[in-house]
């Protein structure tokens, strides 16, 4: 009986230890940053920059096409 009790306590304690360990080793991620919604601002900025660049590339391509077609 005594042995079983010690075993039970030991098992309980080990599970607690395991839990504490996972809490410590969990790497820090930008979870609150994302939930606050501010990441969408960054995504919008990225999208605007990229769309501007692509528009410019399309503009250059069209200009070049016109120059190629000129006789």
């Amino acid at each position: 009986m005594k042995h079983k009790l010690i075993l039970l306590v030991a098992l309980l304690f080990s599970s607690l230890l395991g839990h504490a360990q996972t809490m410590i080793t969990e790497p820090q991620m930008a979870d609150t940053f994302r939930s606050e919604g501010k990441i969408y601002v960054v995504i919008s900025v990225l999208a605007i920059v990229f769309i501007c660049l692509i528009s410019y590339l399309i503009y250059i391509d069209v200009k070049l096409k016109k120059l190629e077609n000129r006789k």
Partner: peptide
Amino acid sequence: MLNPVPHLDILN
């Protein structure tokens, strides 16, 4: 930017 990624140390 939005998809879930593995939680890794140092890399984050």
